[in-house]
């Protein structure tokens, strides 16, 4: 029998489609990556609300306070019981007043409280902030994705 002599060739796969896909995947994850980790805290599980829509424009001059279920507050990476926040708020007020051109009274205190935290603790926290001189507050809630409103009735419903 005659055996056909084959010329040995290096087989090369076409890499173009794979690289296309990989770059598309990278672009997808790059666009969606969220670097605002400092605004979240693992100990806080926000209450949900059907009306909690993200603001159209990003608020400026924010001070974010996380309030855990047990009364632990986190502000500027400092963890302290919420009743002991006054000192840190005074420092923050002074810092905004002296080191920036902003008016500390226009600064918004964003309160990210755990949904099972006692409401009275949130009230006390607001009072402590008021005593430090802050006036504007924002209570943060998670957008209720299932649009079935848990707490509100549709008009005419």
């Amino acid at each position: 029998m005659r055996i056909k002599k084959r010329k040995s060739e290096i087989l090369e796969g076409d890499l173009t489609p794979m690289i296309d896909m990989t770059f598309q995947l990278i672009a997808f994850f790059m666009v969606l990556i969220n670097f605002t980790q400092s605004e979240t805290n693992d100990m806080v599980q926000l209450p949900d609300s059907a009306l909690a829509k993200p603001p159209d424009s990003q608020l400026e001059n924010l001070v974010i306070i996380h309030l855990g279920q047990d009364g632990t507050a986190v502000m500027n990476h400092t963890e302290v019981n919420y009743l002991g926040l006054r000192h840190y708020l005074d420092v923050e007020y002074y810092r905004i007043d002296v080191q920036t051109t902003d008016n500390p009274k226009q600064t918004t205190i964003v309160i990210r409280a755990h949904k099972a935290a006692k409401g009275g603790m949130v009230q006390e926290l607001i009072q402590i902030c008021q005593e430090a001189g802050f006036e504007n507050f924002a209570l943060r809630a998670e957008e209720n994705i299932n649009s079935a409103p848990k707490y509100i009735t549709p008009l005419g419903g």
């Binding site: 979240t40 909690a52 608020l59 809630a141």
Partner: peptide
Amino acid sequence: FIMTFKIVAMEGDFNIRMP
């Protein structure tokens, strides 16, 4: 990017002005 990917629910604020 896959490892750092985290789906975060959108959040919104209720503004309260309390001098």
